[in-house]
């Protein structure tokens, strides 16, 4: 798009949108012109939302989830099982686990997984903070709930090594297996192997 044709303010927003993942120059232009013509305060509301996103949020100094108040609501909630800790990669994983309503313990967000290829080592994750919490807190069980990817598995293995020395701490991880409503026939063999390994007595 020829930059001298458009006013600077328009071009600037197009460029900003185009920097976002999954948005190309055409989508960026379309979004910009949509906002330009949008009724009422839509563009200003978006701008305010973006402003608040950075200004009002912070990381919980306990669990490192995203929060507007520190400590976060989950860490402050006395109705939760405070001896149970679930370690996840990202804040969105907390959202997923909360949606299940099956978990009532506390969380610890690592903000990533170990991946030397991307230059991400343990020191780039909230692992020292986790060690600290475990040493000073009174946890009975740590559930490691990283993604079932190579990097997630490597992180689990790494944590397993680090946490093995802590006395009286039970280490668990999420089961691997069939998805609910899934067809056995269409399940790949690695998942099936894991499901067989993790079979349960009836």
């Amino acid at each position: 798009m020829a930059s001298n044709v458009l006013p600077r303010s328009v071009q600037r927003l197009i460029d900003e949108f185009a920097r976002l993942p999954g948005i190309g120059p055409k989508s960026a232009a379309r979004l910009t012109f949509y906002l330009l013509r949008a009724a009422g305060d839509q563009a200003l509301d978006l701008s305010a939302a973006l402003h608040d996103l950075k200004e009002k949020t912070t990381l919980c100094s306990n669990c490192f989830n995203i929060t507007e108040q520190d400590p976060c609501a989950i860490c402050l909630d006395d109705n939760r099982q405070r001896e149970l800790l679930c370690v996840v990669e990202e804040p969105l994983d907390v959202v997923a686990l909360e949606r299940s309503r099956a978990y009532k313990g506390l969380y610890h967000v690592l903000h990533g997984a170990i991946s030397p290829v991307e230059g991400i080592g343990p020191e780039d994750l909230k692992i020292e903070e986790l060690m600290n919490r475990l040493q000073h807190g009174d946890f009975g069980e740590v559930i490691i709930a990283t993604n079932a990817t190579l990097e997630g598995d490597a992180t689990t293995l790494y944590l397993q090594r680090r946490l093995a020395g802590i006395e009286g701490l039970r280490l668990t991880r999420l089961a691997r297996g069939l998805s609910v409503g899934g067809d056995l026939e269409y399940t790949d063999d690695i998942t099936l192997t894991r499901a067989l390994e993790g079979r349960q007595s009836l």
Partner: peptide, 24 residues
């Protein structure tokens, strides 16, 4: 293998990652 090689490189070049190597 790619991750392990990256871990080896980071040990050589930056002196960090020794604790990650056994995992890979």
């Amino acid at each position: 293998l790619e991750q392990r090689n990256a871990a080896l490189r980071s040990i050589v070049e930056e002196g960090k990652g020794r604790d990650v190597l056994p995992v890979f």
